[in-house]
Simulated assay, not measured.
Amino acid sequence: MGRLTGGDPSLLRRINSAVVLQALRDSRDGPGAEAPTLTDLVRLTGLSRPTVEGVVEGLIAAGLVLAAEPGEGGTRRQGRPARRFRFRAEAGHLLGVEIGSHRVAALLSDLRGGMLGSTVRAVPESASADERLEQVRAVVPELLRAAGVTRGSLRAVGVGSPGIVEADGTVRLCTALPGWTGLPLAQRLRRSFRCPVLVENDANAAAVAEHWKGAGVGCDDLAVVLAGLSPGAGSLIGGRLHRGYGGAAGEIGALHLLGREATPEETLSTPGQPLHPLDDAAVARVFERARGGDARAREAVERFVRRLVHDVAALVLALDPELVVVGGWAAGMDSVLVPLREELARYCLRPPRVELSVLGDAAVATGALRLALDHVEEQLFAVEGRVTARR
């Protein structure tokens, strides 16, 4: 790679373009708000007026910026109005997809992350990898048609999936979905899209979502636990997603393999026999009976909470997060918070705050969408070396 110098005109153009575009993207948008003028952009960016004028014209030509109509987003004034400009959030679109044991869900947004639509389709737990991927291919055009968006406008697709996911989007290990271990998921999905496809572990995606729009807004050190058949956790440290060396960080559901805990089938059993089949519907029935006062179901839920506490305590002792967000099966159970808080206070040197997920079933798809948005923003705004804009 050639050496970049401070006087490289190509680099300076990229820096200035990114700075102006970000100022436009971050400007207030909505009823009563006015799009910025050239004078506003000069003030916001610190660039000279000729530089801003040249950058804006280039961004208009690229389809990322639009000259706003006089009075758009504000009130009309006497005399010749100053030209105003806005970021074209509609210039591209993003998809966030969740591939789960029993469903496929998708969210669609513009380039600001504004939600344009969503869809969910049930998938049998026994569905093969090919059948599950076919459901993904089926829900996407359905969602695009409903929103009036063309497939060609997609800039990136984020996908949240169970399992340990490698950097290239291959699922190295997954016990939740048939035929998923070893699946080159990103490669398979790229056949259906003309844009980058980013695959992430579902708990990691949920952590990104809670930090963006959920219980973890404003908190940069948090862990999100998806309480399911095999509890998994995603964590952010200093605001950055922590995947671990091999992408297996947060796989706390493997703790029972150490022989110190019962299997999920035994933990959630009500008649003394392993729960079979062990799926979301069966577990939901156990929780429902517990809420209704069934003694055996309450004992099963208590065992589930104790196991969850042990798993979460191990995570908290290792990471020392400020906040633990609980999702998955336990997301709708207010009763899980008190025992979790009490037991973590016993086990942990500095107990974290514990909250239920506010995103619920939408957490994984929302996080996948945020990852797609991060990818596009990096393309639009990131510049090598993070060099300061030049006048």
Rank of each mutant, 00 (worst) to 15 (best):
E98H: 06
T45L: 00
A91W: 01
I237A: 10
I15W: 02
R28A: 15
R341N: 11
A68D: 08
N201W: 02
V140A: 05
A345E: 09
G238S: 10
L38V: 14
P196K: 12
D202Y: 03
A389S: 12
L24S: 03
E265G: 10
A35T: 15
E125T: 15
S335G: 11
A35I: 15
D110A: 00
T263G: 05
N201M: 06
A215W: 07
G63T: 12
V97S: 03
A207M: 09
A209W: 01
R260S: 14
P277R: 02
L94C: 04
G182F: 02
L236R: 03
R243I: 01
L41Q: 12
G2V: 06
S192I: 01
R13A: 08
G92Y: 05
L371A: 07
V136T: 07
G96P: 05
G250V: 00
G7T: 11
Q379C: 09
D202M: 08
R291K: 15
R84I: 02
V376M: 08
R103N: 13
H256Q: 14
I15Y: 02
C195W: 08
E90C: 04
D202L: 05
G46S: 15
G253E: 04
D374Q: 07
V159G: 13
V225E: 12
A223P: 09
T170A: 07
V140N: 06
V312E: 09
H310W: 12
E166N: 05
V123H: 11
G169D: 08
A176Y: 02
G244Y: 00
R151K: 10
L359F: 09
L356H: 06
E131G: 15
R43D: 14
T181P: 09
A206V: 03
S118F: 06
Y245P: 00
V42W: 06
V309I: 12
P81I: 01
G246H: 13
G73C: 04
S27R: 07
P178W: 02
N16I: 00
P352F: 05
R291I: 05
E134G: 14
V376K: 11
G114E: 13
A127C: 12
L337T: 01
G169Q: 02
L59K: 09
G259R: 11
L24I: 13
E57C: 09
C174M: 00
W329L: 12
V305T: 14
E166G: 11
G73M: 06
S109N: 03
L255N: 04
E384F: 03
L229H: 14
T45P: 04
A300L: 08
P277F: 03
R190Q: 10
Q379G: 14
P31D: 14
S335D: 14
V301R: 11
V56A: 07
A146T: 00
V354K: 09
G6A: 06
A129E: 15
G30W: 14
A186L: 05
A389R: 10
R188K: 10
L380V: 10
R289Y: 00
V217L: 14
I15N: 01
R84H: 08
T119N: 09
G152D: 12
